[in-house]
Each structure stands twice: as structure tokens, then as C-alpha cells.
């Protein structure tokens, strides 16, 4: 318990630092949204209009950095992340709330499937090393070595453009109204096949390889020999003794990868124009939409921190040796 409290304190400090940096970063970038807007309207804005834009965006230089910082914290606690510039006047929290389910559904489910499937194949490949499964490894490694946005582009050109079996862009049939009905869900599933497969194929090799190698290492441990000598069924030795120990490093890797779902989705969503948070971030960056960027960065940071904490807790549950402090 003390261990957990110490970890929690550590995460609180990290969160504070991350939020502060998150506040600073956009303000240190060159240019501001009003400048961007002026450029977009090619000087057809009057001085008054420009001044009112600054006030509107809260960028009037009157207020000091410190007071901006304090206001930022105050708003944060109210769940108010400001108004998005690009989706003006929609609040940032609402933009995020609309896009994040798409990302979680696509990347979250894909990451879990990739981990579970990859680990299972890895367990078997490591246990039966030298069998035909080992021939699978170079293939999966080849696919994981290809950048996945490029893999996505190839997938689009082959399956969507040439063959036409899958849609090239979007999250669901245009014209459908999002809701919990079969028509919408099936359409969303259909649209998610291509991006999901892309992510799956490019990420699964890592899990297979990591798990296989740990299985090979653990299989030669004394306690596995003892388990064999005890005459236990092979399945029990493989799962209860070898895999149970070999999975530990993969588990923490998995928890961390959960944290990167939100942040790591940018390229896939750009390639597939998927309405998730990565795509929103992409538009936000293009439009110098500070509040939106800050909001998304905040979500990414929190996701990573929560995933880390989760990894600690899961590890604590799975490996009794880390429970020493308890």
C-alpha cells in the first residue's frame, strides 16, 4: 500500500509538470491564431476586427503569463479547456468528447487484440521453438518494420482504390446519423477494418517476438525443469510456469502501449481521415488552435500517466516479488 501511495505521489508531481509544460508550449510557438487568420483572409481584415479577435481568443496581451497560468489551472478544474478556434465556438472538451470514442474504439480494441493474439502466438512459438511458427517471425517482423502510415497508404491503394472492397476514408457511411443502431454500428465496423488491420499487422510482431524470446529464456529456468519433473501436464507447465513468468515484461509494455493509444493514433487517422482524436489534433496544429492542442496534449499526458499507474498496479498483482513493501 505504501508503495502505491508513493507511486501515486510521483504521478501527481509528473502530472503537474506535464500540465505546466503543456501550458507553456503553445505560447512559445511562433505565430498565433489571429496571425494565421489574417493570413487566411489575406489582409482583408480591419484593425478593429483584428483587435476583437485577440480579445475573443483571450490573447489580448494585457494579462501577464502568471495570471494566464492561474486562469488555466482554474478552468482546468472546472473541466473548461476553452473554446476551439477551428471548431469555433465549440468548447474543446466537447470536441475531444466527440472524437475520443472513435480513437478508443479503433486503437483500443486493436491494441488489445494485437497484444492478446501476439502474446498467445509468442507463448506457443517460444514453447515449440524451432517449429513452423518460427518461420512466421521474419514475416511479421518485416511488416512491423514498415512504417504503419505507409502500410496504410498501400492498403488504401490496394483494397480501397484498386479493389474497392473497403472505404478509403472516414469513420462511417456519410449521411448516417451516429447512434446505437445496427446500421450505424455495422457501417462503423466496416469502415474500421482497414485502419485496424494496418495497426494490427504493424504492431503484432513486437508482442510475438518479445513473448517468444522471454518464453525461450524462461523455459530453461530451473522451476520449469522441476515442473516437468513433477509430471505435470505439458499445458500446465507451459502456461502456469513458463508463460506466467514470461508474460511479466510484456504486461508492463502493454500497459504503456495503452497510454500511447491516444497519442500514437495521429498518423493512422490522418491517412484514413478517421474522425478520431489524432485527426482533430492534426487539424488543430494546422490552424494553430492553442486550446484544442492543449486539451489534446493534456488527454495524451493523462492517458500515459494513468496507463503507467495501471502498469504498476497490474505488476504488483502479478509479481509477488514487487510486493515487498506491503
Amino acid at each position: 500500500m505504501r508503495f502505491l501511495l508513493r507511486r501515486a505521489l510521483f504521478y501527481l508531481v509528473t502530472a503537474w509538470a506535464a500540465i505546466t509544460i503543456n501550458f507553456m508550449l503553445p505560447r512559445m510557438l511562433p505565430g498565433d491564431p489571429v496571425q494565421a487568420m489574417i493570413a487566411r483572409f489575406q489582409g482583408r481584415l480591419s484593425t478593429d476586427a483584428i483587435a476583437s479577435l485577440y480579445v475573443l481568443f483571450g490573447l489580448d496581451t494585457e494579462s501577464s503569463m502568471l495570471s494566464q497560468y492561474l486562469t488555466y489551472w482554474g478552468n482546468l478544474f472546472k473541466g473548461d479547456l476553452g473554446l476551439s478556434f477551428t471548431y469555433f465556438p465549440t468548447p474543446v472538451s466537447e470536441v475531444i468528447a466527440q472524437s475520443i470514442p472513435w480513437t478508443l474504439a479503433l486503437m483500443g480494441v486493436t491494441t488489445v487484440i494485437s497484444f492478446v493474439l501476439g502474446t498467445m502466438i509468442g507463448v506457443y512459438a517460444g514453447w515449440k521453438r524451432g517449429s513452423w511458427i518460427d518461420a512466421l517471425l521474419p514475416i511479421t517482423t518485416f511488416f512491423s518494420a514498415i512504417p504503419y502510415f505507409w502500410l496504410g497508404l498501400i492498403a488504401i491503394s490496394v483494397f480501397a482504390v484498386s479493389w474497392g472492397a473497403f472505404p478509403a476514408a472516414g469513420g462511417y457511411e456519410p449521411g448516417l446519423i451516429p447512434g446505437f443502431d445496427w446500421e450505424f454500428i455495422s457501417s462503423a465496423l466496416y469502415y474500421s477494418v482497414l485502419p485496424a488491420l494496418t495497426v494490427l499487422i504493424s504492431s503484432i510482431a513486437g508482442w510475438i517476438l518479445g513473448m517468444r524470446n522471454m518464453m525461450v529464456t524462461v523455459s530453461s529456468e530451473d522451476y520449469v525443469t522441476v515442473a516437468h519433473a513433477k509430471g505435470l501436464p505439458e499445458k500446465r507447465v507451459m502456461l502456469g510456469y513458463a508463460a506466467r513468468n514470461a508474460v511479466l515484461p510484456s504486461i508492463s509494455g502493454f500497459a504503456l502501449s495503452l497510454g500511447f493509444i491516444v497519442g500514437g493514433t495521429l498518423l493512422v487517422e490522418m491517412v484514413f481521415s478517421y474522425p478520431g482524436i489524432g485527426y482533430v489534433l492534426f487539424t488543430g496544429v494546422n490552424a494553430k488552435d492553442y486550446p484544442l492542442m492543449q486539451g489534446i496534449f493534456l488527454i495524451i499526458t493523462m492517458a500515459v500517466l494513468v496507463a503507467n499507474l495501471l502498469a504498476d498496479v497490474v505488476y504488483l498483482m502479478l509479481d509477488p516479488r514487487t510486493r515487498k513493501a506491503a
Binding site: 529456468e221 530451473d222 522451476y223 525443469t225 522441476v226 515442473a227 516437468h228 519433473a229 513433477k230 509430471g231 505435470l232 501436464p233 502456469g240 510456469y241 506466467r244 513468468n245 511479466l248 502479478l318 509479481d319 509477488p320 516479488r321
Partner: peptide
């Protein structure tokens, strides 16, 4: 499998690693 441990049991040399740590 049935012969092992029923008829012949082994006490291994690595006292430290012979037990499953988890």
C-alpha cells in the same frame, strides 16, 4: 508423466530457482 514424481522425485541443485517465483 505418471512415472515422474510417482516413482522418482528429484531435489534439484538450484535451491534458489527451483520454485516458481510467482
Amino acid at each position: 508423466r505418471s512415472f515422474r514424481w510417482n516413482d522418482i522425485a528429484i531435489v534439484f541443485q538450484g535451491a534458489m530457482n527451483s520454485l516458481n517465483p510467482v
